[in-house]
């Protein structure tokens, strides 16, 4: 019983990573109609960035978090203007391929720069563990959960309570309609991309200290995040959040009760099953129309 609770707790903290990635993916997919395959690698880049800032330049962790997020946002802006904006009218497979090319660049770059050996992102409280009764969780993982909650709250407030956020939502729901209302769709698209990459950035620096850093660390979370948004329903941030938490828990339970090696295979299988029987997901607005 305690075991189950522990797995659940681990799953929630794991799910938080997916929450950040998945909401970024949802926003980018909703506005630009591009599944940003590079999202996982952006998260990886942020983790490494934070690592070098803290470990090599002795920067304060929180400062590193802010700077890395900012850097990822800038990167997102550059990627939008140099890659996705020029090809925005091309057949959409081209955009998929572009996202894939970005993935390759980031993966190759990381492999070249950082090598294949894993790195350990150490911060002052790396070894501390928070215990409540028989349950325990690394302090960093608690920070992940707290941080994710704060960020998602801020995001929600932004989307629901600001006019910029409303424009974002409007564009996601109906691009032409938004254009007709005078919304500058290309600016919104840029903003959406920046928000998406920034979220990946936050995720990377938050989870970095809790896991081992290696160049391929982004791939698993990417696929789980995609599974989460499919599970929760494309176009719905709430669905992405719910899906992420559920799949995080599923992964943790599978890891604990079935096998640690295949836990991801389990998650992917759920995505495939979901795609086949209910492509709309739990909260999905509509099945993707060609």
């Amino acid at each position: 019983m305690i075991e189950l609770a522990q797995y659940l707790l681990n799953g929630i903290s794991q799910g938080c990573v997916y929450v950040l990635l998945a909401s970024g993916l949802t926003i980018i997919f909703g506005i630009l109609n591009v599944p940003n395959f590079a999202q996982g690698h952006l998260y990886m880049v942020a983790a490494y960035l934070g690592f070098y800032m803290v470990m090599s330049y002795a920067m304060n962790y929180w400062l590193a978090l802010v700077l890395a997020t900012f850097a990822l946002g800038i990167l997102g802006l550059l990627v939008y203007f140099f890659v996705f904006y020029p090809i925005r009218n091309a057949p959409e497979v081209n955009l998929f391929v572009a996202a894939m090319a970005l993935l390759m660049i980031l993966e190759g770059g990381a492999l070249f720069l950082f090598g294949t050996e894993t790195k350990w992102f150490l911060i002052p409280w790396s070894r501390s563990v928070l215990s409540v009764g028989n349950l325990s969780l690394q302090v960093q993982r608690v920070i992940v959960i707290a941080g994710t909650t704060v960020v998602m709250l801020a995001l929600w407030l932004f989307i629901k309570r600001t006019s910029l956020g409303a424009a974002l939502e409007a564009t996601a729901q109906h691009r032409e309609g938004a254009l007709l209302c005078g919304i500058k769709v290309s600016r919104i698209s840029a903003m959406a991309f920046v928000v998406g990459t920034a979220l990946a950035g936050i995720a990377g620096v938050l989870i970095g200290p809790a896991v081992l850093l290696e160049p391929t660390m982004g791939m698993g979370p990417l696929l789980v995040a995609f599974s989460a948004i499919i599970f929760g329903g494309l176009g719905s941030v709430a669905g992405a959040v719910l899906g992420s938490v559920i799949l995080g828990v599923v992964e943790s339970l599978a890891s604990g009760y079935i096998s640690a090696t295949y836990n991801l295979a389990f998650v992917f299988a759920i995505m495939i099953i979901m795609l086949l029987f209910r492509p709309k997901g739990l909260f999905g607005k509509e099945v993707w129309r060609p």
């Binding site: 997919f29 599944p35 791939m219 599974s227 991801l264 295979a265 995505m271 495939i272």
Partner: peptide, 22 residues
Amino acid sequence: RGPYFVLVTLGFAAIVGVIVLG
């Protein structure tokens, strides 16, 4: 269709990779 199909094929490749390793 579209991104759904791409994702399923990617998921399948990932699963096979995992199984082959595991």
